[in-house]
């Protein structure tokens, strides 16, 4: 089924259940779907597992979701930043569990989920504390660690433009985790700056094909996670 074009962010995120695993796009602020996260906060959903590169910065977006006590666990590569105070406080208070994953493993585990792969061997992390307890194997003289896919119930993604079928294009380094999260989640909800007529996007440059997209909502002038009010 092609994507549903939603009039509001509330409509787009409706029905996200307590206890869901939610992938949230973005590398710091670029690509972080702040308006969708705010709508998720408004639904009251709690007990969430958040999969994202960072654990929020400033006071908006992912940071606000954590501050409001909606997140039980964060799976990310880089939680500690100069302005990650919301996560830092929740973590030190024992309110949120952290699974720290090397960034390339995070990306590849998400990609593996999207492609139906049951696991893969990677040299990243071999011999380090992040590989403790994991199966290792030597293949052609190289030591590898077994890593498993990360699947999600929902992905919240920010793209630049969508057509009415849900095909997506992104903008510069705001693309980051968007395409792989969109294809790894059971349900993908996308905010874009502009929705164009079907056929208006050059098929040669579409990054996320519509098959991976479920809901689209237009946010004409999206907030920056670090600066938004």
């Amino acid at each position: 089924m092609s994507a549903t074009i939603c009039a509001t962010t509330a409509e787009a995120v409706a029905g996200i259940a307590d206890g869901s695993t939610v992938m949230i796009g973005g590398f710091g602020s670029p690509g972080q779907p702040v308006e969708l996260i705010e709508a998720l906060i408004d639904t009251g959903a709690r007990g969430l597992t958040v999969v994202s590169n960072n654990a929020g910065n400033g006071d908006h977006g992912i940071a606000a979701l954590i501050r409001e006590g909606r997140v039980d666990k964060v799976i990310c590569s880089f939680p500690r930043q100069s302005d990650s105070h919301c996560f830092d406080a929740a973590y030190r208070a024992g309110k949120v569990e952290l699974e720290l994953v090397p960034q390339g493993n995070l990306a590849e585990r998400i990609r593996a989920a999207s492609a139906g792969i049951g696991g893969f061997f990677t040299p990243t992390g071999y011999g380090t504390m992040l590989a403790e307890g994991k199966e290792v194997r030597q293949i052609d003289g190289v030591d590898y660690v077994l890593e498993h896919p990360i699947r999600a119930d929902v992905a919240l993604v920010k793209a630049h433009r969508a057509d009415r079928l849900g095909n997506l294009v992104y903008r510069k380094t705001a693309r980051n985790f968007g395409p792989i999260m969109a294809s790894a989640a059971t349900r993908t909800i996308v905010q874009v700056e502009e929705i164009v007529e079907t056929g208006a996007l050059d098929p040669e440059v579409i990054v996320t094909p519509s098959i991976f997209v479920d809901q689209v909502v237009a946010i004409v002038d999206p907030a920056d996670a670090e600066e938004s009010a």
Binding site: G28, Q81, R111, K172, D224
Partner: peptide
């Protein structure tokens, strides 16, 4: 400064002729 164009330290950067953008799995 373009908020969609940053480096790994999240500092705004510029692009050069012939640059390309790609998603995280390709980057890694």
């Amino acid at each position: 400064v373009d908020h969609d164009l940053v480096n790994a330290g999240k500092i705004p950067v510029t692009q050069t002729p012939g640059c390309s953008f790609f998603h995280h799995a390709d980057s890694f």
